[in-house]
Amino acid sequence: MDDVNTSASETLGHRIRNRSATLSTGERAVADYLQRHPEQTAISSAAKLGEITGTSDATVIRTARKLGFDGLNDLKRSLVEHLTRRRNPAQVLDDRVQRLSPAEHGVLRPVIDAGLALLGEVPALVESDEWSRSVAAINEAEHVWAYGIGPGASVAEHLALSLRRVGKAADAWTATGFRLADDLLRLQPSHAVVAVAPLRVFREIGILLDHAHRVGASSILLTEATDEGRGTRADILLPLPDSTDGAANELIAPLTILHAIVLELVAARRSSAVDHYQQLNALRTEIAGTELDISQLPEL
């Protein structure tokens, strides 16, 4: 194995980012595939991975070693363990706490560092074409429906609120089970759906994306479970970096990505977006019954 400082707590994304300068063009192609298709990698041979990436089995094995693994089997074993943990929220939480190694002043700094590292992986995962298509789909939609389950529901609700504030018709769905069916009846061909599924693509999300496809509505899926995501009918898949092997919260990346999309929309329709915010402030003043005037504040 190459003489590289390898930490057992490093995610595959961290390993790739930290060692990218040491990878050849072929090795980089293999590394990109490993990061985008962890489920498929875990069940594929070196020869198959070499065929898929247009390289060779030797390049695949060499890439695994350069990333700090003993070989391809070690890498695959790590991926299987990771994919198993991702389906167990309690295990994810326990692993995060165990890996923190609190410093003298607590866990704040390690958590911030983990969040920064996680966000640093986003640019390599989100392709420019998919980004442009995502922005266009939301911009052109007559109405945007954001959907999330559990923690992902808070991101969906925040996206809907942010879009409404800049003048885009939007609402959030957070129902599960039979209750989701009533929401799905409202979906029209001119609409767009944004599904937030950080760790798992639940059954409801698959059904939502299937229905959007049947109706003819645009659909965007944000998830770490990229191979699961590619098995859905989503028009656009925005991969999220792996959050389960570190202290960063899984909502940081989707929240940041969707915030950036909203800002893209604002940049394209700046005057109308600002006007909507001015209307918002006027309504707030009307509700509060008074307008905050800095000239009326007492002198300090």
Rank of each mutant, 00 (worst) to 15 (best):
W173P: 01
L49D: 02
T232P: 11
V97C: 05
V262D: 10
A146I: 05
D227S: 13
Q296Y: 07
V215W: 02
R214F: 07
Q279W: 00
D3Q: 14
S45F: 03
S295P: 03
L161Q: 09
A160Y: 11
D235W: 09
H82R: 04
A260W: 07
S134A: 15
R269N: 15
L255N: 09
L100G: 02
A175D: 13
A156N: 05
A31F: 14
G148K: 09
D183T: 11
I287E: 00
R269L: 07
A268L: 12
L240N: 12
D74N: 12
P151N: 10
T290G: 03
R86D: 10
Q296A: 10
A117C: 10
R85N: 04
L163W: 13
T174R: 13
H259N: 08
W131T: 09
L116K: 11
P241I: 03
L119G: 00
K168C: 09
K76V: 01
V92F: 02
L72P: 02
D2K: 09
L116N: 13
R86L: 06
L221V: 01
P189I: 08
I220Y: 01
D113W: 03
F202M: 12
I261P: 06
R99S: 14
T41R: 03
G54F: 09
V262I: 10
V266L: 07
P102D: 12
A260D: 08
L187F: 05
D210N: 08
L100H: 03
R164V: 07
V122T: 15
T223S: 09
P151R: 10
G13D: 11
R270E: 12
D113S: 11
V166T: 13
D171G: 04
D183G: 06
R19Q: 08
V166P: 04
A248M: 10
